[in-house]
Deep mutational scan, measured.
Amino acid sequence: ENVVSAPMPGKVLRVLVRVGDRVRVGQGLLVLEAMKMENEIPSPRDGVVKRILVKEGEIDDTGQPLIELG
Protein backbone atom coordinates (compact mmCIF):
# COMPACT_ATOMS: atom_id res chain seq x y z
CA GLU A 1 0.00 0.00 0.00
CA ASN A 2 1.75 3.17 -1.20
CA VAL A 3 -1.05 5.65 -0.52
CA VAL A 4 -2.39 6.35 2.96
CA SER A 5 -6.08 7.28 2.70
CA ALA A 6 -8.44 8.94 5.15
CA PRO A 7 -10.27 6.34 7.26
CA MET A 8 -13.02 8.86 8.02
CA PRO A 9 -14.14 12.33 6.96
CA GLY A 10 -12.52 15.11 8.94
CA LYS A 11 -10.28 18.16 9.06
CA VAL A 12 -6.51 17.88 8.73
CA LEU A 13 -5.20 19.51 11.92
CA ARG A 14 -1.49 18.75 11.69
CA VAL A 15 0.85 17.07 9.22
CA LEU A 16 3.54 15.36 11.30
CA VAL A 17 5.99 14.44 8.51
CA ARG A 18 7.74 16.07 5.55
CA VAL A 19 8.59 14.82 2.08
CA GLY A 20 11.75 12.73 2.31
CA ASP A 21 11.17 11.65 5.93
CA ARG A 22 11.75 7.97 6.71
CA VAL A 23 8.79 6.56 8.62
CA ARG A 24 8.22 3.30 10.48
CA VAL A 25 5.09 1.21 10.66
CA GLY A 26 2.73 2.74 13.25
CA GLN A 27 4.43 6.16 13.23
CA GLY A 28 1.98 9.07 13.17
CA LEU A 29 1.74 10.79 9.78
CA LEU A 30 -0.95 13.37 10.44
CA VAL A 31 -3.75 14.28 12.82
CA LEU A 32 -7.39 14.40 11.67
CA GLU A 33 -10.21 15.97 13.67
CA ALA A 34 -13.43 14.01 13.33
CA MET A 35 -16.49 14.31 15.57
CA LYS A 36 -14.59 16.69 17.91
CA MET A 37 -11.86 14.09 18.48
CA GLU A 38 -8.25 14.17 17.29
CA ASN A 39 -7.17 10.98 15.51
CA GLU A 40 -3.53 10.30 14.65
CA ILE A 41 -3.24 8.46 11.33
CA PRO A 42 -0.38 5.92 11.47
CA SER A 43 1.89 4.70 8.71
CA PRO A 44 0.80 1.26 7.48
CA ARG A 45 4.42 0.28 6.74
CA ASP A 46 8.04 1.37 6.81
CA GLY A 47 8.94 3.72 3.98
CA VAL A 48 9.81 7.22 2.83
CA VAL A 49 7.29 10.05 2.43
CA LYS A 50 7.13 10.75 -1.33
CA ARG A 51 4.23 13.23 -1.47
CA ILE A 52 1.87 14.94 0.95
CA LEU A 53 -1.48 15.28 -0.80
CA VAL A 54 -3.33 17.47 1.73
CA LYS A 55 -2.70 20.70 3.64
CA GLU A 56 -3.41 21.60 7.24
CA GLY A 57 -6.93 22.98 7.55
CA GLU A 58 -8.34 21.01 4.60
CA ILE A 59 -11.46 18.89 4.97
CA ASP A 60 -11.13 15.35 3.64
CA ASP A 61 -13.58 12.59 2.75
CA THR A 62 -13.37 8.91 3.62
CA GLY A 63 -10.96 7.21 1.23
CA GLN A 64 -9.29 10.44 0.09
CA PRO A 65 -5.54 9.96 -0.49
CA LEU A 66 -3.51 11.80 2.16
CA ILE A 67 0.14 10.75 1.87
CA GLU A 68 2.10 8.70 -0.66
CA LEU A 69 4.88 6.46 0.62
CA GLY A 70 7.79 5.09 -1.38
Results as ranks from 00 to 15, higher is better:
Glu1Gln: 12
Glu1Pro: 13
Glu1Ser: 13
Asn2Glu: 11
Asn2Leu: 14
Asn2Trp: 15
Val3Cys: 13
Val3Gln: 07
Val3Phe: 14
Val4Gln: 03
Val4Asp: 02
Ser5His: 14
Ser5Glu: 09
Ala6Phe: 09
Ala6Arg: 04
Pro7His: 08
Pro7Thr: 09
Pro7Cys: 09
Met8Gln: 09
Met8Tyr: 15
Met8Ile: 09
Pro9Arg: 13
Pro9His: 10
Gly10Pro: 02
Gly10Ile: 05
Gly10Thr: 05
Lys11Phe: 09
Val12Ser: 01
Val12Thr: 03
Leu13Asp: 05
Arg14His: 08
Val15Arg: 00
Val15Asn: 03
Leu16Asn: 05
Leu16Thr: 04
Val17Cys: 07
Val17Met: 00
Val17Gln: 00
Val17Glu: 02
Val17Asn: 00
Val17Pro: 00
Arg18Glu: 13
Arg18Phe: 06
Arg18Thr: 11
Val19Tyr: 03
Val19Gln: 08
Val19Cys: 08
Val19Gly: 02
Asp21Thr: 06
Asp21Met: 07
Asp21Ala: 06
Asp21Leu: 06
Asp21Glu: 13
Arg22Glu: 11
Arg22Tyr: 14
Arg22Gly: 07
Arg22Cys: 14
Val23Leu: 03
Val23Ser: 01
Val23Ala: 02
Val23Glu: 02
Arg24Tyr: 12
Arg24Ser: 12
Arg24Thr: 13
Arg24Glu: 10
Val25Lys: 15
Gly26Leu: 05
Gly26Tyr: 06
Gln27Leu: 05
Gly28His: 09
Gly28Cys: 14
Gly28Asp: 04
Leu29His: 00
Leu29Ser: 00
Leu29Gln: 02
Leu30Val: 13
Leu30Phe: 06
Leu30Ala: 05
Val31Cys: 05
Val31Asn: 02
Val31Lys: 00
Val31Tyr: 03
Leu32Cys: 06
Leu32Val: 10
Leu32Ser: 00
Glu33Thr: 05
Glu33Asn: 03
Glu33Gly: 09
Ala34Val: 14
Ala34Cys: 14
Ala34Gly: 10
Ala34Tyr: 15
Ala34Asp: 09
Ala34Phe: 15
Ala34Glu: 06
Met35Val: 08
Met35Arg: 10
Met35Ala: 12
Met35Gly: 14
Lys36Pro: 05
Lys36Gln: 14
Lys36Thr: 12
Lys36Arg: 11
Lys36Ala: 14
Lys36Leu: 13
Met37Thr: 12
Met37Leu: 11
Met37Phe: 09
Met37Cys: 11
Glu38Tyr: 08
Glu38Ser: 08
Glu40Asp: 06
Glu40Asn: 07
Glu40His: 09
Glu40Arg: 07
Glu40Gly: 04
Glu40Thr: 15
Glu40Ala: 08
Ile41Lys: 00
Ile41Cys: 06
Ile41Arg: 01
Pro42Leu: 14
Pro42Arg: 14
Pro42Asn: 10
Ser43Arg: 01
Ser43Pro: 03
Ser43Lys: 02
Pro44Leu: 05
Asp46Thr: 08
Asp46Val: 06
Asp46Ala: 11
Gly47Pro: 01
Gly47Met: 03
Val48Gly: 02
Val48Ser: 05
Val48His: 08
Val49Asp: 02
Val49Gln: 00
Lys50Thr: 13
Lys50His: 10
Lys50Tyr: 08
Lys50Cys: 13
Arg51Phe: 05
Arg51Tyr: 05
Ile52Phe: 00
Ile52Thr: 01
Ile52Gln: 02
Leu53Asp: 03
Lys55Tyr: 13
Lys55Glu: 12
Lys55Val: 13
Lys55Phe: 12
Glu56Cys: 09
Gly57Tyr: 05
Gly57Pro: 04
Glu58Gly: 06
Glu58Val: 11
Glu58Thr: 11
Glu58Arg: 10
Glu58Asp: 14
Ile59Val: 12
Ile59Tyr: 14
Asp60Ile: 15
Asp60Lys: 15
Asp61Met: 13
Asp61Val: 14
Asp61Ile: 14
Thr62Asp: 08
Thr62Gln: 12
Thr62Gly: 09
Gly63Arg: 08
Gly63Glu: 07
Gly63His: 09
Gly63Leu: 08
Gly63Trp: 06
Gln64Trp: 12
Pro65His: 08
Leu66Cys: 05
Leu66Asn: 02
Glu68Met: 10
Glu68Asp: 05
Glu68Cys: 11
Glu68Gly: 03
Glu68Phe: 08
Glu68Pro: 02
Leu69Arg: 01
Leu69Asn: 01
Leu69Trp: 04
Leu69Ser: 02
